[in-house]
Design a binder for these strands. Structure first.
Lengths: 329, 329
DNA sequence: CTGAAAGCGCTAACAG
DNA sequence: CTGTTAGCGCTTTCAG
């Protein structure tokens, strides 16, 4: 691996000069600049980022910690963030925490050790105490980590209320909520979905019903649980889920059991990724504004990096939209 | 950010001693070890990886360059690789090249500058000449990059032949191949799918038909093109696609047009991710051995890193499997 | 416009 | 068992 000094020798100049042309710093004669460029080409020189960042220069690296990359919602959010960061000349280090606290901690430490300029956290398990002590710029997607860490998310309350109303307007009255149900301790932003569901149904004098489905359990088991629910409870006529994949599962189960959608049963999902709109357009769902979320996450991070802004108990909330398919109405 | 020297002062020892306890190197008395640990805790010390790696120590970082993370096949392959690497105490830097040559080049340079211990490349556009000059350990998924870069992939020929035979055995005779069609210049491993398709049909005295669908074009346009094909060509009775998503699209179009699957039309996909098996179990498809691919990619990389093995025109090929759903037969 | 020298945070001989 | 010293590859005063 050629180093700066090699380039300097080859070009017949000092290391300082080479550094200057690389960084476009100070005044350099056209002649020496050319000599240096030629030498760099010939040696196939790649600057060593480690050495450079060791001086305190920015790494131009942003770490993302997310619970999963196989879930289309996270995949699209991550891809959008990555794309926008790239356009701002930042590279992304993606860490897949897999809903595993220890892994999350390891990756967080790795990011800190590698001096990333900022961190975007999207994990949804209970939060690590380590976040309290982070010195770098940091922002969270839809989850409380610490008072000093700003949160960006969609309006879970509004979205879920929209979903419940859509089911009710479609004529459903025996409605179930499938998905993560609030554990009991600290309230996270996504718990607003459950709260909105209860409230909206109450406003219409309807009883809210629940099938708790933790993110931990396997898809096959979820499938089985939904199947049991629909078999035992033939009068269910409305289901809202906390993500689109569970809605897909529900539709599959309904088909297996000969339940007609939307006549016998109305289904509405949550997330509304491009993936679902492309490959499962029939699904009615609540679409989160992925692109806006990404942009706001990044802006909030950049304000910390560039202006040393500091936040305290800050929560940015973006509105969701209803996408009407054929599984409701 | 506390540094090693701060810890040393606080513990009343030399920097070397602190370095020794951090790296578990040499002999240290229980007493000093404790003092150092206490000091580290109190200062919330995180070693600076950059400084450490600058000495030539390994970074324990592996870079992945993939064309997309929103495609379920890549998402699952990436997640599997990441998981296995993590278990071997390597962290992953995921780079999303988005089918963009310049982005791919930028990320490659970034990985080299950041001194990653190895690189796994899964992009499928035409290859950058930069790969010729890479000095680090490197391995490619299903694509030729340079003679010195080993390739790991599934048996595209066998998989596609399996798919074509499944359609023929299901009674199809007017069969189309939808997906990437070989451009004409250099032959990539995935081009074997098209070759196998032609060959297999010829063996059965059938004419191969094609609807070329580049990965570049948008899903909506693909949808439209498939719709036109099926409308104009009512006697098509078999379709094989080069990925499962295109198969999903085909099924959607068929439903729109009132074409019954598998009676009127048999469809078979390619990839067979867990995602498809979970949420679209009816699809008949060719499953790539994702977990084996991940393992072999990593082993091949580790042999270069640990044993300084060197490969020349090496191509590892893993077999595919048929997964029977209800869209064929 | 160009160079010499110091130092970023850490590790690795070499001493003791 | 512990400390001193030099140096990884680069940037950055400070001189000229």
């Amino acid at each position: 691996m050629a180093k700066l000094e090699d380039v300097a020798k080859k070009a017949g100049v000092s290391p300082t000069t080479v550094s200057r042309v690389i960084n476009n710093y100070g005044a350099i004669s056209e002649n020496t600049r050319n000599k240096v460029h030629t030498a760099m080409k010939e040696l196939n020189y790649q600057p060593n980022s480690l050495a450079r960042s060791l001086q305190g220069k920015k790494t131009q690296l942003i770490g993302l910690i997310f619970p999963s990359i196989t879930n289309p919602f996270y995949a699209e959010l991550i891809a959008t963030i990555e794309d926008q960061l790239f356009k701002s000349h930042y590279k992304t280090i993606l860490c897949n925490a897999s809903n595993d606290q220890n892994k999350e901690r390891d990756y967080l430490n790795m990011l800190v050790s590698n001096q990333v300029d900022g961190i975007i956290v999207g994990t949804h398990s209970k939060s690590l105490k380590e976040y309290q002590e982070i010195k770098q710029a940091i922002v969270s997607f839809d989850r409380y980590l610490a008072d000093s860490i700003p949160i960006v998310g969609s309006d879970n309350y509004q979205g879920a209320a929209l979903a419940a109303e859509e089911l009710i307007n479609s004529g459903a009255s025996n409605i179930y909520f499938l998905g993560n149900v609030h554990a009991g301790r600290d309230l996270q932003p996504t718990d607003q979905r459950e709260i909105a569901f209860r409230k909206t149904l109450a406003e219409h004098q309807l009883t809210p019903n629940f099938l708790p489905l933790s993110t931990e359990i396997s898809v096959n088991i979820k499938h089985m649980m939904i199947r049991e629910l629909l078999q035992k409870n033939q009068n269910i006529d409305g289901i809202m889920t906390t993500d689109d994949l569970t809605a897909l599962l529900t539709i599959n189960v309904a088909r297996e059991l000969g339940i007609t959608i939307p006549n016998d049963l109305k289904v509405i999902g949550f997330d509304g990724t491009k993936f679902i709109q492309d490959y499962y357009p029939e699904l009615t769902t609540i679409a989160q504004p992925i692109s806006d979320i990404a942009e706001l996450l990044i802006n909030t991070l950049f304000k910390q990096i560039d202006n040393h802004d500091h936040y305290e108990n800050k929560h940015f909330i973006l509105p969701n939209k209803l996408i009407k398919g054929n599984t409701s109405r």
